[in-house]
């Protein structure tokens, strides 16, 4: 989306709301047949979001988190808690900043030249952007699963054993065998692969590969798993397997899932966060967001009224 110019916004919003709207940094001009609610200028929070961004005893606490790619502010002042043993779904149109926000949580944005993060992100009360923070150690606590399954071109066993080996989590071969086995079991893959642990992982189906990637993440015993559209490349059956798995994993860890599928967000999450043009617009219980969205932008997005 292009950055709005003050003149554009003032022209669209009228003299009374122009100032407010330009502060909000949103392009509010109705274009084509895209539905833009008339009360948008007034409704859009300049700071913060509607709903409840906070939880008791959060695993992650984000306060005023902004991400800049060079001059461009991709995420603007997001304040959000992520609870333990629950699934938070991040939804919103393409380019709304939901993936960028997700990548703040395990410092993946560090790898992007020109990316800069401001605000604070704490994991169990510790600032993850602290200067002396060991990022490799941090990422062991925060697993990540990507859109496209990315197993190493090694055996199924080696894929799962890789993390525990480099982080020296096991003391013996027997320990490692057991960890590989439990990780594959937790990922719901054991019965399908127990007889071919030493065959190439790249020969598995897409859905199996994705569950293998989850098993590989589980093997280093993370506290949180970040999922960036984990089912976009999968068929409905494989998707149902992953969603079922997400529901099981919720018993022991927190999951943040970015998804383009609102139905998926509605099915798997306990809390839903709606992002729009880099802002967190609304966050709340999934039950409420999909029945009684408080913000007009959320309502319009989930009912398919713009995008």
């Amino acid at each position: 989306m292009p950055e709005p110019r003050r003149a554009d916004v003032s022209a669209a919003g009228g003299s009374t709301s122009g100032k407010h709207a330009s502060e909000s940094g949103l392009d509010l001009k109705p274009s084509g047949r895209v539905h833009v609610p008339s009360s948008l200028e007034e409704a859009l929070p300049t700071e913060g979001s509607v709903g409840n961004a906070f939880v008791d005893d959060p695993v992650f606490s984000c306060r005023d988190v902004s991400v800049f790619y060079g001059e461009k502010e991709a995420v603007r002042k997001v304040t959000l808690d992520i609870g333990r043993r629950q699934v938070l779904a991040a939804i919103g149109p393409s380019g709304c900043g939901k993936s960028t926000f997700l990548r703040c949580l395990n410092r993946m944005n560090d790898t992007i030249p020109g990316a800069r993060v401001t605000g604070t992100v704490t994991l169990d009360g510790q600032d993850i952007y602290e200067k002396r923070r060991d990022v490799a150690q941090l990422r062991a606590r925060i697993g990540m699963v990507f859109q496209k399954p990315n197993p190493f071109p090694k055996s199924i066993y080696e894929n799962v054993a890789y993390g525990p080996r480099i982080h020296r989590l096991t003391r013996s071969r027997a320990d490692l065998d057991e960890l590989v086995c439990t990780s594959l079991q937790r990922a719901g893959l054991w019965n399908e692969v127990k007889d071919r642990l030493h065959t190439l992982a790249t020969g598995m189906s897409g859905g199996q590969q994705q569950r293998l990637c989850i098993a590989r993440t589980l093997a280093v015993q993370p506290e949180v798993i970040l999922m960036d559209e984990p089912c976009s490349a999968l068929d409905p059956i494989a998707t149902a397997h992953i969603e079922d798995l997400i529901d099981d994993l919720r018993a022991s860890l927190a999951i943040v899932i970015v998804t383009h599928s609102m139905q998926q967000a509605a099915r798997v999450s306990q809390r839903t966060a709606y992002f729009h043009m880099g802002r967190l617009i609304e966050v709340g219980d999934t039950d409420d967001v999909f029945t009684n969205p408080q913000h007009r932008l959320t309502e319009d997005y989930i009912t398919g009224r713009f995008g």
Binding site: Q263, A266, F290, T291, N292, T303
Partner: peptide, 9 residues
């Protein structure tokens, strides 16, 4: 269509 929110209502 799997309507949600106001559409479902």
């Amino acid at each position: 269509r799997q309507p949600v929110a106001s559409d479902l209502k």
